[in-house]
Amino acid sequence: MKRLTVETDLPFCDIAKCDFIPGGSFCEDGRCDQRRCYEKLREYERSDLEPETLRKAQGLLKELKDARQTVELMDACGKRVCSSEEHWGCPYGNEGMTDCAVLLEAAYEDTVEKLLALKETLEG
């Protein structure tokens, strides 16, 4: 993909030769809309991710929103089965008293697979 930003650490205002006073009416808090857009684009271009790779990574991240909870539960519960009292507080418990360890283990394995897919996506 062709770069639209320049590879430098100069601030946007120096690159654009902006003559407005930082913090003035055109430049709220020293960061105008043009500068914010430019810096976001430069950050994206420095990541070397193609748009399709980025979309795939963002999708995986959405699927992994509860990953921390799953990993922490797996660490806390391990392979043990909850008592009936603990069972109702467990997100993997249900009315049929199904073995929540089996459900938690399946969620954990799914989380690990998604994390590995995210790693592969980002590494190319």
Rank of each mutant, 00 (worst) to 15 (best):
F12P: 02
A57T: 06
G23L: 09
C100V: 00
G124A: 10
D110Q: 08
L73A: 14
K56Q: 13
R3D: 00
L61N: 15
A106S: 00
L104E: 00
K114I: 12
D48E: 15
K79Q: 09
A76I: 10
K62F: 05
C90I: 03
F12I: 01
E86Q: 15
E85R: 14
Q58G: 02
L41I: 15
E39M: 12
S25W: 13
S25D: 13
E120W: 13
S83V: 07
K114D: 09
D75H: 10
E120M: 13
E72A: 06
E43K: 15
F12C: 12
A101M: 03
L104Q: 01
Y38H: 10
R36Y: 06
V6L: 09
D48M: 13
I21S: 04
R42M: 15
R55Q: 08
E39G: 10
E105H: 04
E123Q: 04
P51F: 02
E85H: 12
V81Q: 02
C18V: 03
A106G: 02
S83N: 14
D19S: 10
E28K: 13
E50P: 00
Q58H: 06
R55W: 01
A101H: 03
C32D: 09
R42N: 15
C90V: 07
G124R: 06
D14P: 03
Q58T: 08
F26P: 07
E105M: 01
G23H: 05
E50W: 05
G124L: 05
V81T: 13
E50H: 05
P51K: 02
E105N: 04
C13S: 08
C37A: 15
R35S: 11
T8S: 14
T98C: 11
G89Q: 13
F26Y: 11
D99S: 07
R35G: 06
L103K: 05
F26G: 08
T8A: 07
P22Y: 05
L60E: 13
D29Q: 12
V102I: 11
D29G: 11
A101G: 08
P11F: 05
G78V: 11
G23I: 06
L54H: 01
T53A: 11
K56G: 01
K40D: 09
K17W: 04
D75Y: 05
E85V: 14
E63P: 00
L104K: 10
Y38T: 12
I15G: 03
L41A: 08
F20R: 10
V6A: 04
C32F: 09
L10V: 02
M1G: 01
L60M: 10
A67R: 02
E28F: 15
T111W: 05
R80C: 14
P51A: 06
C32K: 07
T121C: 11
G78Y: 15
G23Q: 04
T98V: 08
E109M: 04
M74Y: 14
A107K: 05
T5K: 06
P91I: 13
E85D: 13
W88G: 07
E39V: 11
D29K: 12
R68N: 09
Y38M: 14
V112E: 01
A67S: 12
E52D: 07
R68P: 03
R42L: 13
L103E: 03
I15Q: 05
E120P: 00
D19I: 14
I21N: 02
L122G: 01
E7Q: 11
A67H: 05
S25R: 12
T111H: 04
C13E: 12
A117N: 01
D9F: 04
G24I: 04
